[in-house]
């Protein structure tokens, strides 16, 4: 078979590494929300810039796949371009900006507005996989807390938020319970996107390269955002509509237009926005 980048294997990773990551992915799917440790490799892109997602994508991608890469919902942000180019160079696969055309979507910080369909695979770039990390910095402790399903500390933390601010102040990377068992970080997506995780027909894979963890949410799996009866989970909303496509239901980026307080709002999902204007 022809190799796209001289001297490197298809999709950069060697086959032994892919096999190790594939085994981790399969166990992650079998135990939804549980963080599987894996022998994360050093990638030619910096840690914190998507090395986990890249390793997951490199391990699953085949020649027939169509890849979409987004950062902040957009295909044309520099890091998304850089990662898309990486796979175009190392795997020679087709890439797309259209959500509906993609078989694999690697993302940082957003889930597309266009509903995902069965057969698609979402790959999330994860900076910190451990939902309990801000409460307990030690891996040895948090591992035991997961084993015992001991998540009271997270509820206490939210309760303190409510006592202090009148509401839960976590706005992104908002913790969820997967399949009624594991507390999971959905990666730093705005909580607006949390509802898309629940019972999605797509397979969702999460890769944390620096922290060396892979986890997954299979299709049709219950994903519940943590909340209280008297403080139900709620998401961001805007009084404005998208200035480009007029959407009132999508996640909006605020853009400053001058230094006099002028601002406008546009869809964060550039493909969604374009599909509504063209």
């Amino acid at each position: 078979m022809t190799q796209t980048l001289a001297g490197y294997n298809f999709a950069y990773l060697d086959e032994q590494t892919k096999r190790m990551i594939r085994r981790a992915i399969l166990k992650a799917v079998a135990i939804p929300g549980y963080q599987v440790p894996f022998g994360s490799r050093e990638m030619p892109l910096p840690y914190g810039w998507g090395t986990g997602g890249i390793q997951v994508t490199a391990s699953i991608i085949g020649r027939a796949d169509v890849l979409k890469v987004i950062d902040q919902g957009a295909d044309d942000t520099t890091n998304a371009i850089s990662i898309r180019r990486f796979f175009a160079r190392t795997a020679g696969v087709a890439t797309t900006e259209r959500t509906v055309e993609a078989t694999i979507i690697q993302t940082r910080h957003r889930i597309p507005e266009t509903p995902l369909r069965a057969g698609q695979i979402m790959v999330y770039q994860v900076p910190i996989p451990e939902p309990l990390r801000w409460l307990e910095p030690r891996e040895t402790e948090t591992r035991t807390m997961h084993a015992l399903s001991e998540y009271g500390a997270m509820h206490v933390r939210f309760y303190e938020d409510i006592a202090h601010h009148g509401r839960i102040t976590t706005t992104y990377d908002y913790p969820v319970i997967v399949n009624d068992r594991y507390l999971m970080r959905p990666s730093p997506i705005p909580k607006f996107d949390n509802q898309k995780l629940d019972m999605s027909p797509a397979l969702q894979l999460f890769g944390a390269g620096r922290e060396k963890r892979i986890y997954a949410v299979p299709p049709f799996t219950k994903v519940k955002s943590l909340d209280f009866h008297d403080h139900p989970f709620s998401v961001e909303s805007w009084d404005a509509a998208c200035s480009l496509c007029g959407s009132t239901t999508s996640y909006l980026d605020e853009v400053l237009t001058d230094d006099q307080g002028g601002r406008m709002f546009v869809c964060s999902d550039t493909d969604y926005c374009r599909s509504r204007t063209s």
Partner: peptide, 19 residues
Amino acid sequence: GFVQHLKLPHHVDFQSELD
């Protein structure tokens, strides 16, 4: 890598915080 990843765009999450 992780310290410098803070220079990547974070405007989606920042929008959440602004809200």
